[in-house]
Amino acid sequence: MADVTMRVWRGDEDGGTFTEYVMPAVEGEVVLDVIHRIQAGPAPDLACRWNCKAGKCGSCSAEINGLPKLMCMTRMDVLPEGEPVVVAPMRTFPIIRDLVTDVAFNYTMARQVPPFKPREPEADGTYRMQQIDIERGQEFRKCIECFMCQDVCHVIRDHEENKASYAGPRMFIRFMELESHPLDTDDRRELLRERMGLGMCNITKCCTEVCPEHIKITDNAIIPLKERVVDASYDPVAWLGRKILRRTKRSALEAALDAPGQHTPTRQEQPTRPVVSATDHS
């Protein structure tokens, strides 16, 4: 078989460039296989995050020919033949080295999601739910946290300043899972509007397009959340309905106070990342 040309981003926060590696093509390989062969051959110091190689750990996210993909799930034979395969790190997050980025932003936002707050249990101390009540949220449990939806979202990809006030698609599916849970008692809609930046999303659906688990992020999470926020903030008829029916969910403030992010030290307060030298491995 012919050779394949891999154009891989090499560099760190001091700068970087694409480096070309010409490797023999092997039938049935995925991009991650070729990256591993580069590590085993011409570039043993090439940094790349990976784990399961089965599309379930969400570690090997990168931008292949410009689009966010899992390296372990992108077959070489579906890429244009005869052209270099361009492999770059995720653009939205700060670079650590080569193909490895610092995705701490996502964990900072995850800590601000108010957790599940169930209602009082039934008399026998248990909860009962029907399958139809819970199946909507099960779609969102498929998320492998590859953060490619966060990476491709132009709200933070092209506008760094929005990171301070935008949770992103991955967190929105978590919000939707909690908001639509039949046992949950928190009302997170005001929090979504005021602090999580739901209104920043202009539903261009790139998150849905890149999701390796094929979660309908926009149609099943973001738009339903937007409609729920309309119920809470922009629809006088829905407001009147709530007043008449006396809905009794906990407020966004009460919910937000339960979020673990309210207790989490910031990066500045955390110890710096330990530096492990090559000789320490022994």
Binding site: L67, A88, T108, A164, Q262
Partner: peptide, 30 residues
């Protein structure tokens, strides 16, 4: 804490900036 509104809550600081990887081009898509 003492908070009366959502706005009273101190937001968790997000570290902005940081050098991004990849070339500074509009897109790498071909």
């Amino acid at each position: 804490r003492v908070s009366t509104t959502l706005q009273d809550l101190k937001p968790v600081p997000v570290e902005l900036g940081g050098v991004r990887g990849g070339p500074d081009v509009r897109t790498l898509r071909r």
